[in-house]
Design a protein around this nucleic acid. Structure first.
Lengths: 229, 229
DNA sequence: TATTTAAAAGTATTATATACTTTTATCGCA
DNA sequence: TGCGATAAAAGTATATAATACTTTTAAATA
Protein backbone atom coordinates (compact mmCIF):
# COMPACT_ATOMS: atom_id res chain seq x y z
CA UNK A 1 0.00 0.00 0.00
CA UNK A 2 1.22 3.43 -1.01
CA UNK A 3 1.11 6.15 1.63
CA UNK A 4 -0.30 9.64 1.26
CA UNK A 5 1.67 12.80 1.98
CA UNK A 6 1.45 14.60 5.31
CA UNK A 7 0.04 18.11 5.78
CA UNK A 8 3.31 19.65 6.96
CA UNK A 9 5.98 20.72 4.52
CA UNK A 10 3.49 21.33 1.73
CA UNK A 11 3.67 24.40 -0.48
CA UNK A 12 1.24 27.18 0.36
CA UNK A 13 -0.36 29.59 -2.08
CA UNK A 14 -1.66 33.13 -2.21
CA UNK A 15 -5.39 32.88 -2.81
CA UNK A 16 -7.48 35.65 -4.34
CA UNK A 17 -10.97 36.24 -5.66
CA UNK A 18 -11.81 38.36 -8.71
CA UNK A 19 -15.33 39.71 -9.21
CA UNK A 20 -17.02 40.02 -12.60
CA UNK A 21 -19.79 42.50 -11.72
CA UNK A 22 -22.60 42.72 -14.28
CA UNK A 23 -25.18 45.47 -14.33
CA UNK A 24 -27.85 46.67 -16.77
CA UNK A 25 -28.42 50.28 -17.77
CA UNK A 26 -29.87 52.16 -20.75
CA UNK A 27 -30.57 48.98 -22.64
CA UNK A 28 -27.06 47.62 -22.30
CA UNK A 29 -25.40 44.89 -20.26
CA UNK A 30 -22.43 46.44 -18.49
CA UNK A 31 -19.39 45.42 -16.50
CA UNK A 32 -17.71 47.25 -13.62
CA UNK A 33 -13.97 47.63 -14.25
CA UNK A 34 -11.13 49.20 -12.30
CA UNK A 35 -7.93 51.08 -12.95
CA UNK A 36 -5.36 48.91 -11.22
CA UNK A 37 -3.56 50.75 -8.44
CA UNK A 38 -0.51 48.59 -7.87
CA UNK A 39 2.28 47.02 -9.86
CA UNK A 40 2.42 44.97 -11.96
CA UNK A 41 -0.07 46.33 -14.45
CA UNK A 42 -0.67 49.62 -12.62
CA UNK A 43 -3.03 51.93 -14.52
CA UNK A 44 -4.51 49.18 -16.70
CA UNK A 45 -8.11 48.04 -16.55
CA UNK A 46 -8.89 45.00 -14.45
CA UNK A 47 -11.54 43.24 -12.45
CA UNK A 48 -11.75 44.06 -8.78
CA UNK A 49 -10.18 41.45 -6.55
CA UNK A 50 -9.24 40.73 -2.99
CA UNK A 51 -7.23 38.31 -0.92
CA UNK A 52 -8.82 35.31 0.75
CA UNK A 53 -8.31 35.23 4.53
CA UNK A 54 -7.67 32.10 6.55
CA UNK A 55 -10.91 32.43 8.50
CA UNK A 56 -13.33 32.83 5.62
CA UNK A 57 -14.63 30.91 2.61
CA UNK A 58 -13.90 32.11 -0.90
CA UNK A 59 -17.59 33.03 -1.21
CA UNK A 60 -17.29 35.26 1.84
CA UNK A 61 -14.19 36.89 0.40
CA UNK A 62 -16.10 37.67 -2.79
CA UNK A 63 -19.05 39.09 -0.80
CA UNK A 64 -16.63 41.24 1.17
CA UNK A 65 -15.12 42.65 -2.03
CA UNK A 66 -18.56 43.32 -3.53
CA UNK A 67 -19.74 45.10 -0.38
CA UNK A 68 -16.61 47.21 -0.26
CA UNK A 69 -17.03 48.37 -3.85
CA UNK A 70 -20.79 48.72 -4.26
CA UNK A 71 -22.15 48.95 -0.74
CA UNK A 72 -24.44 46.04 -1.59
CA UNK A 73 -24.90 42.77 0.26
CA UNK A 74 -27.07 39.70 -0.35
CA UNK A 75 -26.38 39.94 -4.07
CA UNK A 76 -26.57 37.06 -6.52
CA UNK A 77 -23.04 35.76 -6.95
CA UNK A 78 -21.73 32.50 -8.35
CA UNK A 79 -18.35 30.84 -8.73
CA UNK A 80 -17.04 30.75 -12.28
CA UNK A 81 -13.81 28.78 -11.99
CA UNK A 82 -10.28 28.64 -10.66
CA UNK A 83 -7.45 30.37 -12.51
CA UNK A 84 -4.10 28.91 -11.57
CA UNK A 85 -1.55 29.13 -14.37
CA UNK A 86 1.74 29.52 -12.47
CA UNK A 87 2.66 32.65 -14.43
CA UNK A 88 -0.80 34.21 -14.68
CA UNK A 89 0.17 37.08 -12.36
CA UNK A 90 3.65 38.52 -13.02
CA UNK A 91 3.72 39.67 -9.40
CA UNK A 92 3.90 36.13 -8.07
CA UNK A 93 2.12 32.82 -7.77
CA UNK A 94 -1.50 33.72 -7.07
CA UNK A 95 -4.37 31.29 -7.52
CA UNK A 96 -7.55 33.23 -8.17
CA UNK A 97 -11.18 32.19 -8.09
CA UNK A 98 -13.45 34.19 -10.38
CA UNK A 99 -17.02 35.02 -9.32
CA UNK A 100 -19.68 36.75 -11.31
CA UNK A 101 -22.31 38.95 -9.69
CA UNK A 102 -25.54 40.51 -10.96
CA UNK A 103 -26.61 43.87 -9.59
CA UNK A 104 -29.13 46.62 -10.29
CA UNK A 105 -26.93 49.56 -11.29
CA UNK A 106 -29.45 52.07 -9.95
CA UNK A 107 -29.23 50.70 -6.43
CA UNK A 108 -25.49 50.67 -5.86
CA UNK A 109 -23.34 53.28 -4.14
CA UNK A 110 -21.83 55.47 -6.85
CA UNK A 111 -19.50 57.31 -4.48
CA UNK A 112 -17.79 54.10 -3.48
CA UNK A 113 -17.34 53.21 -7.14
CA UNK A 114 -15.76 56.61 -7.81
CA UNK A 115 -13.56 56.21 -4.78
CA UNK A 116 -12.09 53.07 -6.30
CA UNK A 117 -11.62 54.66 -9.72
CA UNK A 118 -14.07 52.28 -11.35
CA UNK A 119 -16.20 52.59 -14.47
CA UNK A 120 -19.15 50.76 -16.01
CA UNK A 121 -18.28 49.44 -19.50
CA UNK A 122 -20.76 47.99 -22.01
CA UNK A 123 -19.89 44.32 -22.50
CA UNK A 124 -20.10 44.88 -26.24
CA UNK A 125 -17.12 47.23 -26.06
CA UNK A 126 -14.65 46.28 -23.34
CA UNK A 127 -11.06 47.52 -23.03
CA UNK A 128 -8.13 45.13 -22.83
CA UNK A 129 -7.82 43.64 -19.36
CA UNK A 130 -4.72 42.63 -17.42
CA UNK A 131 -3.55 39.07 -16.83
CA UNK A 132 -6.24 36.46 -17.53
CA UNK A 133 -9.11 38.78 -16.60
CA UNK A 134 -10.39 38.77 -20.17
CA UNK A 135 -10.81 35.02 -19.97
CA UNK A 136 -12.60 35.40 -16.63
CA UNK A 137 -15.06 37.76 -18.30
CA UNK A 138 -15.60 35.40 -21.25
CA UNK A 139 -16.34 32.47 -18.94
CA UNK A 140 -18.64 34.61 -16.82
CA UNK A 141 -20.61 35.76 -19.84
CA UNK A 142 -21.01 32.14 -20.95
CA UNK A 143 -22.24 31.22 -17.46
CA UNK A 144 -24.61 34.16 -17.36
CA UNK A 145 -26.09 33.17 -20.73
CA UNK A 146 -26.55 29.60 -19.55
CA UNK A 147 -28.22 30.74 -16.35
CA UNK A 148 -30.44 33.22 -18.21
CA UNK A 149 -31.57 30.42 -20.53
CA UNK A 150 -33.38 28.55 -17.75
CA UNK A 151 -33.72 31.21 -15.04
CA UNK A 152 -35.17 34.71 -15.08
CA UNK A 153 -32.11 36.84 -14.34
CA UNK A 154 -34.20 40.02 -14.34
CA UNK A 155 -34.73 39.68 -10.61
CA UNK A 156 -31.10 40.57 -10.04
CA UNK A 157 -30.40 43.02 -12.85
CA UNK A 158 -33.60 45.06 -13.12
CA UNK A 159 -35.23 47.44 -10.64
CA UNK A 160 -38.10 46.07 -8.55
CA UNK A 161 -40.70 47.32 -11.04
CA UNK A 162 -40.12 46.79 -14.73
CA UNK A 163 -41.99 46.22 -17.97
CA UNK A 164 -41.98 43.13 -20.15
CA UNK A 165 -40.29 45.21 -22.81
CA UNK A 166 -37.45 46.07 -20.45
CA UNK A 167 -37.05 42.40 -19.54
CA UNK A 168 -36.99 41.49 -23.21
CA UNK A 169 -34.39 44.16 -23.96
CA UNK A 170 -32.26 42.81 -21.12
CA UNK A 171 -32.42 39.38 -22.78
CA UNK A 172 -31.68 40.91 -26.16
CA UNK A 173 -28.52 42.44 -24.76
CA UNK A 174 -27.43 39.32 -22.87
CA UNK A 175 -27.76 37.13 -25.96
CA UNK A 176 -26.96 39.78 -28.58
CA UNK A 177 -30.06 38.87 -30.53
CA UNK A 178 -33.58 40.19 -30.98
CA UNK A 179 -36.31 38.09 -29.42
CA UNK A 180 -39.81 38.22 -30.87
CA UNK A 181 -41.92 40.43 -28.57
CA UNK A 182 -45.05 38.28 -28.77
CA UNK A 183 -43.33 34.96 -28.23
CA UNK A 184 -41.12 36.32 -25.45
CA UNK A 185 -44.14 37.69 -23.61
CA UNK A 186 -46.04 34.42 -24.05
CA UNK A 187 -43.20 32.32 -22.69
CA UNK A 188 -42.33 34.58 -19.78
CA UNK A 189 -45.95 34.90 -18.66
CA UNK A 190 -46.34 31.11 -18.88
CA UNK A 191 -43.71 30.84 -16.14
CA UNK A 192 -46.14 32.56 -13.79
CA UNK A 193 -43.12 34.26 -12.23
CA UNK A 194 -44.40 37.81 -11.78
CA UNK A 195 -47.47 39.88 -10.98
CA UNK A 196 -48.82 42.74 -13.07
CA UNK A 197 -49.20 46.06 -11.26
CA UNK A 198 -51.89 48.63 -11.94
CA UNK A 199 -49.31 51.06 -13.26
CA UNK A 200 -48.04 51.75 -16.74
CA UNK A 201 -44.81 53.04 -18.15
CA UNK A 202 -45.75 55.42 -20.98
CA UNK A 203 -42.22 56.46 -21.80
CA UNK A 204 -41.83 54.07 -24.71
CA UNK A 205 -45.28 53.96 -26.26
CA UNK A 206 -48.57 55.76 -26.43
CA UNK A 207 -50.48 52.78 -25.12
CA UNK A 208 -48.10 52.24 -22.22
CA UNK A 209 -46.70 48.97 -20.86
CA UNK A 210 -47.75 47.52 -17.52
CA UNK A 211 -45.18 47.33 -14.75
CA UNK A 212 -44.51 43.93 -13.21
CA UNK A 213 -42.76 42.67 -10.09
CA UNK A 214 -41.30 39.25 -9.43
CA UNK A 215 -43.11 36.75 -7.25
CA UNK A 216 -41.06 34.88 -4.64
CA UNK A 217 -38.95 32.27 -6.41
CA UNK A 218 -40.78 29.46 -4.67
CA UNK A 219 -44.06 30.33 -6.41
CA UNK A 220 -42.88 30.27 -9.99
CA UNK A 221 -42.93 27.50 -12.55
CA UNK A 222 -39.28 26.60 -12.78
CA UNK A 223 -39.56 23.89 -15.42
CA UNK A 224 -39.68 26.27 -18.38
CA UNK A 225 -36.72 26.89 -20.63
CA UNK A 226 -36.58 30.55 -21.57
CA UNK A 227 -34.04 30.42 -24.37
CA UNK A 228 -32.98 27.33 -26.30
CA UNK A 229 -29.27 27.84 -26.71
CA UNK B 1 -8.77 57.03 -3.88
CA UNK B 2 -8.53 53.89 -1.79
CA UNK B 3 -5.41 51.81 -2.24
CA UNK B 4 -5.22 48.07 -2.77
CA UNK B 5 -3.23 45.71 -0.59
CA UNK B 6 0.27 44.61 -1.51
CA UNK B 7 1.26 41.02 -2.29
CA UNK B 8 3.61 40.67 0.69
CA UNK B 9 2.37 39.82 4.15
CA UNK B 10 -0.75 38.07 2.81
CA UNK B 11 -1.97 34.81 4.28
CA UNK B 12 -1.11 31.70 2.29
CA UNK B 13 -3.19 28.55 2.03
CA UNK B 14 -2.72 24.84 1.55
CA UNK B 15 -4.33 23.99 -1.78
CA UNK B 16 -5.59 20.53 -2.70
CA UNK B 17 -7.59 18.81 -5.40
CA UNK B 18 -10.09 16.00 -4.82
CA UNK B 19 -11.14 13.72 -7.67
CA UNK B 20 -14.65 12.34 -8.10
CA UNK B 21 -13.92 9.44 -10.47
CA UNK B 22 -16.99 8.02 -12.22
CA UNK B 23 -17.03 4.72 -14.09
CA UNK B 24 -19.67 2.45 -15.56
CA UNK B 25 -19.81 -1.32 -15.09
CA UNK B 26 -22.47 -4.05 -15.14
CA UNK B 27 -25.24 -1.58 -15.77
CA UNK B 28 -24.34 0.69 -12.88
CA UNK B 29 -22.72 4.09 -12.51
CA UNK B 30 -19.89 3.74 -10.02
CA UNK B 31 -17.49 5.87 -8.04
CA UNK B 32 -13.90 5.12 -7.04
CA UNK B 33 -13.41 5.61 -3.29
CA UNK B 34 -10.42 5.24 -0.98
CA UNK B 35 -9.68 4.16 2.54
CA UNK B 36 -7.96 7.21 3.98
CA UNK B 37 -4.42 6.47 5.12
CA UNK B 38 -3.66 9.42 7.37
CA UNK B 39 -5.18 11.26 10.31
CA UNK B 40 -7.61 12.83 10.70
CA UNK B 41 -10.25 10.41 9.46
CA UNK B 42 -7.85 7.50 8.91
CA UNK B 43 -9.63 4.33 7.78
CA UNK B 44 -12.76 6.12 6.58
CA UNK B 45 -13.87 6.31 2.98
CA UNK B 46 -12.92 9.38 0.99
CA UNK B 47 -12.22 10.73 -2.46
CA UNK B 48 -8.66 10.60 -3.67
CA UNK B 49 -6.86 13.92 -3.41
CA UNK B 50 -3.49 15.53 -3.80
CA UNK B 51 -1.66 18.74 -3.04
CA UNK B 52 -1.30 21.49 -5.63
CA UNK B 53 2.31 22.41 -6.38
CA UNK B 54 3.55 25.92 -7.05
CA UNK B 55 4.59 25.13 -10.60
CA UNK B 56 1.37 23.58 -11.86
CA UNK B 57 -2.26 24.49 -12.47
CA UNK B 58 -5.02 22.87 -10.44
CA UNK B 59 -6.05 20.97 -13.58
CA UNK B 60 -2.54 19.54 -13.87
CA UNK B 61 -2.65 18.53 -10.21
CA UNK B 62 -5.91 16.68 -10.83
CA UNK B 63 -4.49 14.95 -13.92
CA UNK B 64 -1.45 13.92 -11.91
CA UNK B 65 -3.66 12.37 -9.22
CA UNK B 66 -5.77 10.56 -11.80
CA UNK B 67 -2.72 9.17 -13.57
CA UNK B 68 -1.21 7.99 -10.30
CA UNK B 69 -4.36 6.10 -9.31
CA UNK B 70 -5.65 4.71 -12.60
CA UNK B 71 -2.68 4.82 -14.93
CA UNK B 72 -4.84 6.82 -17.35
CA UNK B 73 -4.11 10.15 -18.98
CA UNK B 74 -6.04 12.37 -21.37
CA UNK B 75 -9.25 11.61 -19.51
CA UNK B 76 -12.32 13.82 -19.47
CA UNK B 77 -12.11 15.87 -16.30
CA UNK B 78 -13.92 19.04 -15.24
CA UNK B 79 -13.78 21.41 -12.30
CA UNK B 80 -16.75 21.17 -9.96
CA UNK B 81 -16.16 23.92 -7.44
CA UNK B 82 -14.02 25.23 -4.61
CA UNK B 83 -14.53 23.98 -1.07
CA UNK B 84 -13.15 26.41 1.46
CA UNK B 85 -15.03 26.33 4.77
CA UNK B 86 -12.27 27.19 7.28
CA UNK B 87 -13.05 24.09 9.36
CA UNK B 88 -13.79 21.66 6.52
CA UNK B 89 -10.63 19.65 7.23
CA UNK B 90 -9.94 19.06 10.95
CA UNK B 91 -6.27 18.68 10.08
CA UNK B 92 -5.88 22.33 9.16
CA UNK B 93 -6.93 25.07 6.76
CA UNK B 94 -7.02 23.39 3.35
CA UNK B 95 -8.83 24.85 0.37
CA UNK B 96 -9.79 22.07 -2.01
CA UNK B 97 -10.95 22.13 -5.59
CA UNK B 98 -13.15 19.21 -6.61
CA UNK B 99 -12.90 17.71 -10.09
CA UNK B 100 -15.00 14.98 -11.60
CA UNK B 101 -13.64 12.53 -14.13
CA UNK B 102 -15.27 9.98 -16.44
CA UNK B 103 -13.40 6.77 -17.24
CA UNK B 104 -14.02 3.39 -18.82
CA UNK B 105 -13.60 0.98 -15.90
CA UNK B 106 -12.37 -1.78 -18.19
CA UNK B 107 -9.42 0.25 -19.40
CA UNK B 108 -7.87 1.36 -16.09
CA UNK B 109 -5.05 -0.23 -14.17
CA UNK B 110 -6.59 -2.44 -11.48
CA UNK B 111 -3.28 -3.13 -9.74
CA UNK B 112 -2.73 0.55 -9.06
CA UNK B 113 -6.25 0.80 -7.65
CA UNK B 114 -5.56 -2.13 -5.33
CA UNK B 115 -2.25 -0.61 -4.32
CA UNK B 116 -4.09 2.47 -3.07
CA UNK B 117 -6.72 0.44 -1.23
CA UNK B 118 -9.51 1.74 -3.44
CA UNK B 119 -12.90 0.30 -4.36
CA UNK B 120 -15.59 0.96 -6.95
CA UNK B 121 -18.93 1.77 -5.29
CA UNK B 122 -22.30 2.01 -7.06
CA UNK B 123 -23.47 5.63 -6.78
CA UNK B 124 -26.86 4.33 -5.68
CA UNK B 125 -25.29 2.92 -2.53
CA UNK B 126 -22.35 4.98 -1.28
CA UNK B 127 -20.78 4.81 2.18
CA UNK B 128 -20.45 7.88 4.40
CA UNK B 129 -17.53 10.01 3.28
CA UNK B 130 -15.18 12.15 5.34
CA UNK B 131 -15.25 15.94 5.58
CA UNK B 132 -17.30 17.58 2.81
CA UNK B 133 -16.59 14.82 0.28
CA UNK B 134 -20.26 13.81 0.24
CA UNK B 135 -21.13 17.29 -0.93
CA UNK B 136 -18.42 17.10 -3.59
CA UNK B 137 -20.01 13.90 -4.88
CA UNK B 138 -23.50 15.44 -4.90
CA UNK B 139 -22.32 18.45 -6.88
CA UNK B 140 -20.40 16.23 -9.28
CA UNK B 141 -23.43 14.07 -9.93
CA UNK B 142 -25.50 17.15 -10.64
CA UNK B 143 -22.83 18.39 -13.06
CA UNK B 144 -22.60 15.00 -14.74
CA UNK B 145 -26.38 14.91 -15.24
CA UNK B 146 -26.34 18.40 -16.71
CA UNK B 147 -23.51 17.49 -19.07
CA UNK B 148 -25.19 14.22 -20.06
CA UNK B 149 -28.35 16.14 -20.90
CA UNK B 150 -26.76 17.97 -23.83
CA UNK B 151 -23.64 15.88 -24.50
CA UNK B 152 -23.15 12.18 -25.17
CA UNK B 153 -21.10 11.09 -22.16
CA UNK B 154 -20.83 7.55 -23.47
CA UNK B 155 -17.61 8.45 -25.24
CA UNK B 156 -15.87 8.65 -21.88
CA UNK B 157 -17.66 5.97 -19.86
CA UNK B 158 -18.21 3.16 -22.38
CA UNK B 159 -15.73 0.97 -24.23
CA UNK B 160 -14.92 1.93 -27.83
CA UNK B 161 -17.57 -0.40 -29.19
CA UNK B 162 -20.99 -0.46 -27.58
CA UNK B 163 -24.64 -1.05 -28.41
CA UNK B 164 -27.47 1.48 -28.28
CA UNK B 165 -28.97 -0.57 -25.47
CA UNK B 166 -25.78 -0.18 -23.43
CA UNK B 167 -25.78 3.56 -24.04
CA UNK B 168 -29.42 3.74 -22.99
CA UNK B 169 -28.72 1.74 -19.83
CA UNK B 170 -25.88 4.13 -19.00
CA UNK B 171 -28.34 7.01 -19.28
CA UNK B 172 -30.89 5.09 -17.22
CA UNK B 173 -28.36 4.73 -14.44
CA UNK B 174 -27.12 8.33 -14.62
CA UNK B 175 -30.64 9.72 -14.36
CA UNK B 176 -32.17 6.92 -12.28
CA UNK B 177 -35.05 6.60 -14.72
CA UNK B 178 -36.07 4.35 -17.58
CA UNK B 179 -35.88 5.93 -21.01
CA UNK B 180 -38.14 4.64 -23.77
CA UNK B 181 -35.99 2.44 -26.05
CA UNK B 182 -37.57 3.64 -29.28
CA UNK B 183 -37.47 7.33 -28.49
CA UNK B 184 -33.96 7.15 -27.07
CA UNK B 185 -32.70 5.44 -30.21
CA UNK B 186 -34.46 7.93 -32.44
CA UNK B 187 -32.98 10.92 -30.65
CA UNK B 188 -29.47 9.55 -30.34
CA UNK B 189 -29.31 8.54 -33.99
CA UNK B 190 -30.60 11.98 -35.02
CA UNK B 191 -27.42 13.44 -33.50
CA UNK B 192 -25.44 11.63 -36.17
CA UNK B 193 -22.75 11.08 -33.55
CA UNK B 194 -21.75 7.49 -34.22
CA UNK B 195 -21.26 4.90 -36.93
CA UNK B 196 -22.84 1.44 -36.97
CA UNK B 197 -20.39 -1.45 -37.26
CA UNK B 198 -21.08 -4.73 -39.05
CA UNK B 199 -20.97 -6.60 -35.78
CA UNK B 200 -23.68 -7.60 -33.39
CA UNK B 201 -23.80 -8.25 -29.67
CA UNK B 202 -26.07 -11.28 -29.22
CA UNK B 203 -25.65 -11.50 -25.46
CA UNK B 204 -28.86 -9.69 -24.68
CA UNK B 205 -31.24 -10.78 -27.40
CA UNK B 206 -31.80 -13.37 -30.08
CA UNK B 207 -31.81 -10.80 -32.82
CA UNK B 208 -28.66 -9.11 -31.61
CA UNK B 209 -27.87 -5.41 -31.33
CA UNK B 210 -25.43 -3.66 -33.64
CA UNK B 211 -22.21 -2.29 -32.19
CA UNK B 212 -21.50 1.40 -32.68
CA UNK B 213 -18.45 3.64 -32.30
CA UNK B 214 -18.37 7.39 -31.80
CA UNK B 215 -17.46 9.71 -34.64
CA UNK B 216 -15.00 12.51 -33.92
CA UNK B 217 -16.77 15.18 -31.87
CA UNK B 218 -16.40 17.70 -34.66
CA UNK B 219 -18.66 15.70 -36.98
CA UNK B 220 -21.68 15.38 -34.77
CA UNK B 221 -24.80 17.50 -34.54
CA UNK B 222 -24.26 19.24 -31.25
CA UNK B 223 -27.49 21.23 -31.17
CA UNK B 224 -29.66 18.38 -29.90
CA UNK B 225 -30.79 18.15 -26.32
CA UNK B 226 -30.66 14.54 -25.19
CA UNK B 227 -32.60 14.77 -21.95
CA UNK B 228 -34.91 17.60 -20.92
CA UNK B 229 -34.15 17.97 -17.24
C1' DT C 1 -41.14 -24.77 -38.05
C1' DA C 2 -43.34 -22.39 -34.27
C1' DT C 3 -41.93 -19.75 -30.28
C1' DT C 4 -39.33 -16.43 -27.93
C1' DT C 5 -36.51 -12.41 -27.34
C1' DA C 6 -35.19 -7.77 -27.66
C1' DA C 7 -33.73 -4.83 -31.53
C1' DA C 8 -35.25 -1.85 -34.90
C1' DA C 9 -38.52 0.69 -37.30
C1' DG C 10 -42.74 3.02 -37.58
C1' DT C 11 -47.05 5.70 -36.21
C1' DA C 12 -50.11 8.76 -33.81
C1' DT C 13 -50.82 12.20 -30.46
C1' DT C 14 -49.57 15.89 -27.79
C1' DA C 15 -46.87 19.74 -26.59
C1' DT C 16 -43.83 23.37 -27.64
C1' DA C 17 -41.42 26.79 -30.60
C1' DT C 18 -41.59 30.03 -34.11
C1' DA C 19 -43.38 33.24 -37.44
C1' DC C 20 -46.70 36.22 -38.31
C1' DT C 21 -51.31 39.07 -37.87
C1' DT C 22 -54.81 41.61 -35.52
C1' DT C 23 -56.60 44.32 -31.90
C1' DT C 24 -56.06 47.61 -28.16
C1' DA C 25 -54.97 51.74 -25.33
C1' DT C 26 -53.28 56.14 -25.31
C1' DC C 27 -51.01 60.35 -26.95
C1' DG C 28 -50.49 64.37 -29.88
C1' DC C 29 -52.55 67.12 -32.97
C1' DA C 30 -55.56 68.81 -36.69
C1' DT D 1 -63.65 65.14 -31.13
C1' DG D 2 -61.79 62.12 -34.00
C1' DC D 3 -57.79 60.58 -36.68
C1' DG D 4 -53.04 58.93 -37.23
C1' DA D 5 -49.16 57.13 -34.95
C1' DT D 6 -47.03 54.09 -31.65
C1' DA D 7 -45.84 50.04 -29.32
C1' DA D 8 -48.28 46.89 -26.13
C1' DA D 9 -51.00 43.03 -25.86
C1' DA D 10 -53.49 39.35 -27.65
C1' DG D 11 -54.29 35.98 -31.03
C1' DT D 12 -53.50 32.58 -34.94
C1' DA D 13 -51.33 29.27 -37.89
C1' DT D 14 -47.48 26.42 -39.01
C1' DA D 15 -43.52 23.84 -38.12
C1' DT D 16 -40.88 21.16 -35.12
C1' DA D 17 -39.99 18.18 -31.35
C1' DA D 18 -41.40 15.11 -27.37
C1' DT D 19 -43.85 11.27 -25.85
C1' DA D 20 -46.52 7.10 -25.84
C1' DC D 21 -47.43 3.29 -28.13
C1' DT D 22 -47.49 -0.52 -32.05
C1' DT D 23 -45.58 -3.38 -35.56
C1' DT D 24 -41.97 -5.68 -37.88
C1' DT D 25 -37.53 -7.98 -37.98
C1' DA D 26 -33.54 -11.17 -37.17
C1' DA D 27 -31.74 -14.86 -35.00
C1' DA D 28 -31.62 -18.52 -31.38
C1' DT D 29 -33.83 -22.56 -29.65
C1' DA D 30 -37.22 -25.89 -28.36
Amino acid sequence: MVSQQEYGSQEKHLLAVDCVIFGYESGELKLLLFKRQLEPGKGNWSLIGGWVDTLETVEQAAERVLLKITGLSRIFQEEVSVFSAPDRDPGGRVVSIAFYALIDIKSHNKELVNLYDAKWWPVSNLPDLIFDHGQMVDESLAKLRKKASYDLVGRDLLPDEFTLTQLRQLYNSIFSQEFDPGNFRKKILSMDAMVRLNKKDTGESKKGAFYYTFKPESEMNVAIRIINM
